[in-house]
Design a protein around this nucleic acid. Structure first.
Length: 948
RNA sequence: AGGACCAUAGCUCAGUUGGUUAGAGCGCCACGUUGACAUCGUGGAGGUCGGCGGUUCAAAUCCGCCUGGUCCUACCA
């Protein structure tokens, strides 16, 4: 093995090898286990969230595979409608100076496919760098042929069952992107706004009870005044009871609109009167429905004022008898410009009563960043009530379980208050809606144009045009678990791998994706899509900030793996920015955070960091310190393995079936500890507690195997007096324990474990040519190998060694200086232990002599440490620093006093003794005795030294 | 406004049915090139577990209130 651990040299080599050997495909044997990857955007690149998520999925997959399960990790990418379309639009604009409209639909879509073929491999290459053991032979795309069929099928069937309908409805309209978007794609941002109070004159000479000839309404959106179709007052409001059914004259427009009574009007707010604009406000739309008001649309798709309004009834049918005239002055003005003009005109007309500053929230499109406009448009909807019922039941009855559990509440609260799902998008990139129209606007839904004609008996010469819209991306990704397995065909894969075992996803897409998958899958397969949902948090930067390009705090997982120099990192963070003025600050912050750039850490270290931070139900603050730490851990494992190989390669490691071996206490101890570790890691994996799993392995490898066992093996291996059988035993233990550790580590650190395993496994005698650690059995603890006696003895040994080391450090004695130690007040067992461990003790504690002091009262001047009841003395003649030792003893006595004080108080409490379980009281008494004995020894020692 | 989650060492985090001398890694201090490893070794310092109150013999752990933070939902006509 190379002297230093260099991850870049082993990682790509092993991944290629595994892939070439087709090790990721299902074995076809054993109980099935399947995970569907949340499909990343095909043109995207791997971010920290992906890297984290993929690490968890890969760890689960490799772990299950090692347990002999028929394991499928399904890979695929998403066409991601809006995101991809925008990306390609920008690219085309930059390269050719053309808009998508310049190109036309066909040519533009060709461009998108071209871009997909060009860049679609980027994220999958990055996924390989993460070590993801996905079955590449089954890679899918949400717009491939199979998916196309599944989507058409689902759409047509839902339409046949009247669960998909088309209608003119108020939707969230993005005036920049010219498409509807879902509620979930709307981001509400707090804003400093204004509140304008307008006077609306009462018509027909009517007055209020107070004698006013007008009503005052307030709005944050004056421009929607043009589309008002009523003024509402609360039905309980005595001030306006007499006005209900009367009219006001809409200022600037002149339209007569009624005063209606509706509970939406809040008597305590403002004047208690509210203007109602059903075509431009979701609440008002509901009022319109209750009061039978017309919908008066005054905006174009750019959110500019129309020349004449459009009036519709609640079914979206045009209304002829409404006055749709609008003042010419506003025609063509954008909504914000129109607002200013209308406010000015109202003011000039003496109708502006008051202007108030308010804080309000505005809806923004999360893609375009434009203010969303509620707009009346023709859209397709999925009626979700029926679909939601089984989807809720599946979680209620435990068919689907969320980890952690509390996300189920989030799921329920959303599912129980669902609005119909608007699935049409006015985009070009996506699954085009399988609906055709004849010239008079009749619509025919079918799997193809030919089927539409056949189904509806349409003549071949009747011109049909397909709906221009495409489906919401989440409509197709909702079919992901079964669409990837060949549905609607009844395939072998469906039978084997569906429902899938677990979905690993972020809480942020529970609504977008998880809920829709559950609805669609229950509907079309009669099965749940997955049995468990492991929900993880967001990966944030070290300060807890969300990573974003505009903040300049983005870390690229590949940079953490390969390393990156400072200047390149700065260029990456400040290049191609939306707000270039921030570049300087970002560069400065980056320089101060990473003065040397970022060192290479390797994939295994990155994965281990994610796993160690994968605690349930909270966001992850990515910790560079931990990344360094786990890179060091890899290095530690590497070097420990070098030690093992140096001592084992070419030697007899007792691999033969009946080899004569003698196991030392240390051998039995480390094997026993390994069993405990195997139990801990397995349990943690079963519970999705990857932080515990990684911690347990780290502890064992570093603090037990390396710190103690390797050290304890040296005296045996390097002592000429030791028997060949004992050397063989120690070598065998070194090799076998390491081999098991590598299997235990493999799901978490696939590369380094494979690299080392290939060399270690042959020595352990468990290796057949051409095998991979990937498919070795997962280590399961054998309780017969637990050895409490060995554990107690080794704990004693460690205690004595630490005691001597402690004395050295406190007394400032050079670590290498040979010392003499005396033990006293030991039991018979202690004496046996010393004889059994004399060699270990003298080597590890650097003692030239160690023996028993039979008459403690004759003890020479010495520094003392306690190991249980027993005392360890290091005679200090001529060396002792009196003051230092007195100070040390005073500190120790003080510590014991505090412990004793605490317990005496507890035991002095009568109700504690009376009410606490006997075992607890006994334990406290035992501790008290121990502490008191320790204190006594320390005090004697102190007095002795003080007397010098 | 309603809800969820969080608050433990300088930093990032464990601490599953109440009883532990409250732990780990990083960072810090001292010493150290002993034949796996300075990406290291040995020893050490550092916490009244956000605050107040309650339940209990016993609270980091259970309950209530408060403060601070993150997020979600709703409202803001």
């Amino acid at each position: 093995m190379d002297k230093t651990y260099q991850p870049e040299q082993i990682e790509s080599r092993w991944y290629e090898r595994w892939e070439a050997d087709n090790r990721f495909a299902p074995s076809g044997e054993g109980e099935p286990f399947s995970i569907m990857i949340p499909p990343p955007n095909v043109t995207g690149s791997l971010h920290m969230g992906h890297a984290f998520q993929d690490t968890i999925m890969d760890t689960l997959t490799r772990w299950q595979r090692m347990q002999g399960r028929n394991t499928l990790w399904q890979i695929g990418t998403d066409h991601a409608g809006i995101a991809t379309q925008m990306l390609v639009e920008r690219k085309v604009a930059a390269e050719e100076g053309k808009s998508r409209h310049d190109l036309g639909r066909e040519a533009f879509i060709d461009k998108v496919w071209e871009w997909k073929h060009e860049s679609g491999g980027h994220i999958t290459r990055q996924l390989r760098r993460m070590g993801a053991s996905v079955d590449w032979s089954r890679e899918r795309f949400t717009m491939d042929d199979g998916f196309y069929q599944a989507v058409q099928e689902v759409f047509v069937r839902l339409h046949e069952e009247k669960l998909i309908y088309r209608g003119k409805r108020l939707v969230n309209w993005d005036p920049t992107l010219h498409t509807a978007i879902s509620d979930l794609e709307v981001e509400n941002r707090d804003q400093q706004g204004q509140f304008w109070h307008f006077r609306y004159p009462l018509a027909d000479g009517v007055t209020t009870d107070a004698g006013e000839d007008h009503l005052v309404v307030a709005t944050t959106r004056p421009e929607t005044l043009l589309g008002d179709s009523a003024v509402a007052v609360n039905p309980e409001d005595p001030r306006y009871a007499s006005l209900v059914g009367k009219f006001v004259e809409l200022p600037l427009v002149g339209r007569r609109i009624p005063v209606v009574a509706d509970e939406h009007a809040d008597m305590d707010k403002g004047s208690g009167c509210v203007k109602i604009t059903p075509a431009h406000d979701f609440n008002d739309y509901e009022v319109g429905k209750r009061c039978g008001l017309p919908l008066i649309n005054v905006f174009t798709q750019d959110a500019a004022v129309l020349e004449a309004a459009e009036a519709f009834d609640l079914q979206g049918r045009p209304l002829a008898d409404i006055d749709t005239g609008l003042p010419a002055a506003y025609a063509g003005l954008g909504r914000f410009e129109a607002r200013e003009r209308i406010v000015a005109d109202m003011d000039a007309a003496g109708l502006l009563a008051q202007v108030e500053a308010v804080n309000n929230t505005l809806p923004y499109g999360d893609r375009s960043g434009d203010v969303i406009e509620p707009l009346l448009t023709d859209q397709w909807f999925v009626s979700v009530d029926e679909l939601a019922k089984p989807a809720i039941a599946a979680v209620e009855n435990g068919d689907i379980e969320f980890v952690p559990k509390n996300y189920e509440n989030m799921y329920f609260s959303w599912m129980r208050d669902l609005q119909d799902w608007c699935i049409s998008r006015q985009l070009w990139w996506g699954h085009r809606i399988p609906a055709w129209y004849d010239e008079s606007g009749n619509v025919f839904v079918a799997r193809s144009e030919a089927e539409a004609r056949e189904k509806h008996g349409l003549p071949a010469d009747l011109a049909l045009t397909q709906d221009e819209d495409v489906l919401d991306t989440w409509f197709s990704s909702g079919l992901w678990t079964f669409g990837t397995l060949g549905w609607p065909e009844q395939t072998e894969e469906m039978a084997t791998f569906h429902p899938t075992s677990v979905l690993v996803t972020g809480f942020d897409i529970i609504f977008f994706w998880v809920a829709r998958m559950i609805m669609m899958t229950c509907k079309f397969t009669g099965q749940v899509p997955f049995k468990k949902v492991y929900v993880h948090g967001l990966v944030r930067d070290g300060q807890g900030q969300k990573m974003s390009k505009s903040k300049g705090n983005v870390l690229d997982p590949i940079d953490l793996i390969d390393g990156i120099d400072l200047e390149t990192l700065i260029d990456k963070r400040t290049g191609n920015m939306m707000q270039p003025q921030k570049a300087k600050a970002i560069a400065k912050a980056t320089r101060s955070e990473f003065p040397e750039g970022i060192e290479p850490h390797g994939t295994d270290a990155l994965r281990y960091t994610f796993l160690s931070q994968a605690t349930t139900g909270r966001d992850i603050k990515f910790d560079m310190g931990r990344l360094d730490g786990y890179r060091n851990f890899c290095n530690k494992l590497w070097n420990a393995s070098r030690y093992v190989l140096m001592n084992a390669e070419g030697e007899d490691c007792g691999a033969a079936p009946h080899a004569e071996v003698e196991l030392s206490l240390a051998d039995r101890w480390v094997v026993s500890q390994l069993q405990k570790t195997e139990t801990q890691v397995t349990k943690a994996m079963e519970e999705f507690r990857f932080d515990h799993a990684s911690q347990a392995l780290y502890d064992f490898v570093w603090n037990e195997y390396c710190d103690w066992f390797l050290e304890l093996s040296k005296p045996v291996l390097w002592d000429d007096a030791a028997s060949e059988a004992s050397k063989r035993g120690t070598r065998r233990t070194l090799v076998r324990v390491l081999e098991a550790v590598l299997r235990l580590a493999h799901p978490m650190m696939p590369f380094i474990s494979e690299e080392i395993w290939q060399r270690v496994a042959p020595l352990a005698g468990t290796h057949a040519e051409g095998e991979s650690v990937m498919t070795q059995p997962w280590p399961l603890a054998d309780d017969a190998l637990l050895d409490d006696d060995a554990t107690r003895d080794i704990e004693w040994l460690k205690g004595v060694i630490v005691a001597v080391r402690n004395i050295r450090a406190e007394m400032n004695i050079a670590p290498g200086k040979p010392l003499e130690a005396l033990l006293t007040k030991g039991s018979e067992a202690d004496r046996e232990r010393l004889e059994a461990n004399r060699l270990f003790l003298s080597k590890l504690a650097k003692l030239e002599r160690v023996g028993w002091l039979d008459a403690p009262e004759q003890a020479p001047l010495a520094a003392t440490q306690l190991v249980g009841e027993m005392e360890v003395l290091v005679p200090m003649a001529g060396l002792i620093d009196k003051d230092a030792e007195l100070a040390r003893l005073a500190k120790e006595i003080d510590k014991q006093d505090k412990l004793i004080g605490g317990i005496e108080k507890k035991l002095g409490n009568e109700s504690f003794v009376a009410k606490a379980p006997e075992a607890v009281v006994e334990k406290e008494r035992g501790k008290l005795a121990d502490f008191q004995a320790a204190r006594k020894v320390l005090v004697e020692q102190r007095d002795k030294i003080a007397a010098l």
